[in-house]
Amino acid sequence: MSDATLQQPPTMLELIGLRKSYGQKLVLKGIDLRVPKGQVVSLIGSSGSGKSTLLRCINYLETPDAGSAIKVDGQQIGSDDPRNLSMRALRRQRTEIGMVFQHFNLFPNMTALDNVCEAPLAHRRGSKAEIQAQAMALLERVGLAERAGHYPSQLSGGQQQRVAIARALAMKPKLMLFDEVTSALDPELVDEVLKVMRALAEDGMTMIVVTHEMAFAEDVGDRVIFMADGAILEDGNPAEVMRAPKAERTRTFLSRALRTR
């Protein structure tokens, strides 16, 4: 084994031949992807390119076609034959993966603190007091400890999204998925969410971020993947992909995206 191999960080996410169809339409055309531990991957591309579907397949919110393989930290997610999928096993596997949605999807009947406590309580990850203390620490981390008793309707969009990030972190996931998390926010609220994500990346969290925030992709991402028509068209470090794209489609997309930035 060479020194280079020894120094390589362990693989956190591995996708092998990930395919997804809706009826006759093939929306993911056999994606192969390996993400090392601690890497921040920005997924960019036009609407309908398959990037959100790819993200949602990783935690089986969308069931991939048979034959696809997804591994997080070496552990298979779902089943390569969806007919043999045990829901109980899938629920356990999903606790390893945190997900943050475009529209926050906080539970409106619970306070910010209860939202963050819900999954650890459901999975009995400690006593109620311990879980609440950990949840408060997470809310502190996203700068919302003083809003712990507020309901989602009493918070701004940016605050709701930060609570959603704290909620996703509550199960101490190995991998975080972010699905266009700033797209539904007013422009002045985007920065507070990106700041939390930036801090998370600096702490070494492995993150897959579907984003239209090109500055974030360039500054925070270790790697940028451009998707088109259900396939990875370009994959490299941010400077390579964003400053010197190889494919014409990437150039066209980036010239439009960077113009509207």
């Binding site: 919110l61 629920r91 999903r94 949605f101 996703a168 199960m171």
Partner: peptide
Amino acid sequence: EAAAAMGL
């Protein structure tokens, strides 16, 4: 979807 992603 949020509940599913949390494994509830």
